[in-house]
């Protein structure tokens, strides 16, 4: 292509004045990337037009200025664009910097959140260790539903009401690896001061106590420890305060199998 003839053809003037056909515009945009002299010629004419028009402007009335400036001051950005980083097309050189900054900011934020979350969990674990007693008692702990339920190691065990207590429900989230289980009571009558609910596990043909359920805190997970890894069934009975060495079968409220 004879780029000098092309530049002199009037196409640049048509383009800058917005009078090109779509095809002419597409061709010119492609060619300006191949021919720096064309690109320079376009920019030069754009600047000439701008300078000439800026020199021959007409000022609107002051009241018009005031009205428009006031409106421009009050315009709100589109809802999905609030302090959006500048577009890549504005200045390509800035894109990697902004991209890096965004990722860095996100990483720092995640790090802070994760640090805080770990701190909270550590504090909770400390509390668990200090409070837990093996075999015969349990403590209620406000572990978040989210933490327990989303743990992929958890085996959920649904426990249903037995006999006249059919309305009773609870779910146990059992972590076989750690031997801990978290019990959420959905429905269970309040125990009297002289009685406690006791949780049992059946393993190796024996039923063993894995803890007293302190049901004073509802709507929270109740944690128990030392759940036998080979347990095949669980039950909850109402026993004398402090618990029994073996379950009172007639007082079984809940039962569930793996």
């Amino acid at each position: 292509m004879d780029i000098k003839n092309y530049i002199a053809s009037g196409i640049i003037e048509l383009y800058v004045m917005g009078l090109c056909t779509a095809e002419e515009e597409t061709e010119l945009i492609e060619l300006r990337q191949q021919y720096p002299e064309l690109d320079r010629a376009i920019l030069e004419y754009e600047e000439q037009v701008e300078n000439k028009m800026q020199q021959n402007g007409t000022l609107p009335a002051a009241a018009v200025d005031e009205k428009i400036l006031s409106q421009l001051a009050s315009l709100k950005p589109p809802a999905d664009i609030i302090n959006m980083p500048q577009q890549a097309s504005v200045k390509n050189i800035h894109r990697p910097a902004n991209w890096w900054k965004a990722v860095a900011a996100a990483a720092i934020l995640l790090f802070v959140i994760s640090g805080y979350y770990n701190y909270v969990l550590l504090k909770k674990n400390d509390r668990l260790k200090s409070l837990a007693t093996t075999g015969t008692s349990t403590e209620t702990l406000p572990l978040s539903d989210y933490t327990v339920i989303t743990n992929p190691a958890i085996t959920p065990v649904a426990m249903y009401g037995v006999g006249t207590h059919a309305i009773c429900r609870c779910t146990m989230f059992w972590d076989k690896k750690t031997g801990k289980a978290y019990i959420m009571i959905h429905h269970l009558p309040k125990s009297s001061s002289s009685k406690d609910y006791q949780l049992w596990a059946e393993a190796d043909g024996k039923v063993v106590s894995i803890g007293i359920i302190n049901d004073s805190i509802r709507g929270r997970f109740i944690e128990v420890e030392n759940v036998p890894a080979n347990a095949i069934a669980f039950s909850v009975t109402l026993e004398k305060a402090g618990g029994n060495s073996s379950p009172t079968v007639a007082e079984t409220y809940l039962a569930g199998k793996i």
Binding site: M53, Q54, G57, D65, I68, L69, L72, S74, P77, M84
Partner: peptide, 22 residues
């Protein structure tokens, strides 16, 4: 592109006479 209102006011003050004439 950041929807900076001050920049729009600047744009108006800087270009209004040429735009108005057009």
């Amino acid at each position: 592109k950041r929807y900076d209102n001050v920049a729009y006011q600047y744009l108006y003050l800087n270009y209004r006479s040429a735009i108005y004439n057009n």
